[in-house]
Design a binder for these strands. Structure first.
Length: 547
RNA sequence: GCGCCCGUAGCUCAGUGGAUAGAGCGCUCGCCUCCGGAGCGAGAGGUCGCAGGUUCAAAUCCUGCCGGGCGCGCCA
């Protein structure tokens, strides 16, 4: 149990005592906006006003008495404020004990908070292998990877998957485009015009004469390899690349088996020669074709087969990360998932809004087909992996982001990511100065903290603030995981770095007197360093020892 | 027309029921005897798109409207 969970439990117990065990909405225990409002503040009294039948401030007073009994000397004092808040002022001993728990948790601090661990499959990026990854793919990659990392840290069993569209018309167009380039002809109508097409034509020995289908497969394989290299450079690794084409292999193929399952479920029908799935049953605005009148399966057909395959692999939850331009597919996929017997609560389709790269105020329109785009590689060359990831992870996935390249480039040294990394490097340097022995001794002393070690009443505001910021980490991880919001970890990392920097400014660490103070501050610095490293690690951003 | 997302400081964005709404950048003024100045402090800057409603309490929840993005194929 973390120090904060402890505190919450005490507040809830006190609250329950006042209302005679009657059920009620759980009170909040949170850091108030203003320092004068205590270390933590609870709204419990206001929630109790209805059932207890007394003015909130009066209830708060009684609650304070209850709580003081339960917390003993850990609670320095309390105040009733505003409409009925109970503000709690915790003793230095409480802070020291809390730090001890943070350190004792070690690498597991903030981990494993999931109430119900699940096997989760996260599908992300899944960009068509008909061109290089573009900057927008970078946002998908950073988001999906960080989300997977956070979910895993939270206690889930997570698989990362890339769904490869290596079947169908787009792939054929790529093959035709490569061959056209090899023959020095213009690419066909609707083909791909990017420079990489010419590169592929030059790379593939028999590109001028090869059978178009085989050439297409070869081109896709090479594009996938390029994509893999880019992702690896970006720090993103998938556990599996799932081939769409494989869904058409075997007898019967996975697509055929999906059709059979859907037909057996009674949700399909034939009309105008085509096979339809009645997705409107599940809230879609129109039914969808699985197999065209000419016998060709649609793209949606392989989607269904993929959904079925994922179901058969025993995941308790499927999370798909899609681009905003694909949000129109959400309803039909959810419909197909349910038609295949899936629990609608077990599939989540997260929509990533766009990222606009802005050059000197110009929004560059992108078109993979016409070869007009900024690739992820170019973006990384420009502003670096860490800045790219941090920038893209700072914002909520459902908010469009304008990334001003000129600004990011110019100010790369003042980018928030460097600020956080700098704090980490600075702690490393400081601890080196202190020396291994003193650090080890400080950690041992902090672990033995009982609150009666000469620190009482001596903690500086910045030290207390930093302890409380550290304590917030498990909740931030939980929020980030449960709300699929990695950006909360990015925001937290920045705040933690700020609180550390304020502490560093106000409190001499190495050489501080008396020894107990130096010891405490070294231990606090170690906890801050570990937590910064962990937060950055979850985002896929490096935590360097020196810059 | 219908559906999804967004509208918060000059700009880019946090903040999904609590007190006097925040950060970064930009701007103004100050700070390098001292553990890393890639830093620190102070300041200016906001009808939280608009209007109703729910609530002891709304940027946050509900309804309507306005503005922006995206989507609405037997395309992929």
């Amino acid at each position: 149990m973390t120090p904060l969970q402890d505190l919450r439990a005490a507040v809830e117990a006190a609250s329950a005592a006042l209302r005679d065990g009657e059920a009620a909405t759980a009170p909040t225990v949170e850091r108030p906006r203003r320092d004068g409002f205590g270390d933590y503040s609870t709204n419990a009294a206001m929630l109790l006003a209805g059932s207890v039948g007394a003015p909130p401030r009066e209830i708060a007073e009684r609650l304070g008495t209850e709580l003081a009994q339960r917390l003993g000397p850990r609670l320095e004092r309390y105040e009733v404020a505003g409409p009925g808040f109970l503000n709690l002022f915790l003793a230095d001993a409480w802070h020291a004990a809390a730090l001890a728990e943070v350190l004792a948790a070690g690498d597991a601090f903030g981990a494993g908070g999931a109430q119900q661990p699940e096997r989760i499959l996260v599908e992300f990026v899944s960009a068509n292998p008909t061109g290089p990854l573009v900057a927008a793919s970078g946002r998908h990659a950073a988001y999906g990877d960080a989300l997977a990392a956070i979910l895993a840290f939270h206690g889930h069993d997570v698989q990362r998957e890339y769904y490869l569209n290596d079947a169908g018309a787009q792939v054929r167009k790529l093959g035709e485009s490569v061959q056209a380039r090899a023959l020095g002809r213009p690419v066909p109508e609707g083909g791909y015009e990017g420079e990489y097409v010419a590169e592929l034509a030059a790379e593939i020995p028999d590109s001028a004469t090869a059978d178009p289908d085989r050439l297409a497969q070869e081109a896709v394989a090479r594009m996938l390899e390029r994509i893999r290299v880019t992702l690896a450079r970006f720090g993103v690794r998938h556990d599996r690349v799932f081939s769409e084409a494989s869904l058409y292999e075997g007898e019967p193929s996975a697509v055929r088996r999906a059709f059979a399952a859907l037909e057996a479920s009674g949700h399909t029908y034939r009309s105008e020669g085509a096979l339809w799935l009645r997705t409107t049953t599940f809230g879609d605005d129109k039914d969808r074709v699985l197999e065209r009148a000419n016998g060709e399966p649609t793209y949606f057909a392989s989607d269904c087969a993929y959904l079925l395959d994922k179901q058969s692999r025993g995941f308790e939850r499927q999370i798909d990360v899609f681009g905003a331009d694909h949000h129109g597919y959400v309803a039909r996929l959810r419909g197909a998932f349910q038609a295949l017997g899936g629990d609608p609560g077990a599939i989540e389709i997260l929509i990533m809004q766009f990222v606009h790269l802005i050059n000197a105020g110009d929004r560059s329109a992108m078109s993979k087909r016409r070869g007009i785009f900024t690739t992820l590689d170019e973006l990384i060359d420009d502003i670096g992996v860490d800045a790219t990831r941090f920038f893209m992870l700072q914002r909520s996935h459902d908010s469009t982001v304008d990334l001003d390249l000129a600004l990011a480039r110019e100010q790369s040294n003042e980018n928030p990511v460097y600020y956080v990394q700098y704090a980490h490097a600075r702690i490393h340097s400081m601890l080196e100065k202190a020396g291994e022995e003193r650090v080890a001794a400080a950690l041992a002393a902090a672990g033995a903290a009982t609150g009666d070690d000469g620190l009482a009443g001596s903690l500086e505001p910045a030290e207390r603030a930093l302890v409380k910021k550290l304590l917030a980490f498990p909740d931030e991880v939980a929020e980030a995981a449960e709300r699929r919001a990695p950006h909360r970890v990015a925001v937290y990392a920045l705040e933690l770095a700020q609180d550390f920097t304020a502490f560093y400014r106000d409190c001499r660490v190495v050489g501080a007197e008396p020894a107990a103070v130096e010891s405490f501050r070294i231990a606090l610095s170690v906890a801050a360093q570990r937590t910064i490293a962990r937060a950055l690690g979850l985002l896929g951003v490096r935590a360097p020892d020196a810059m």
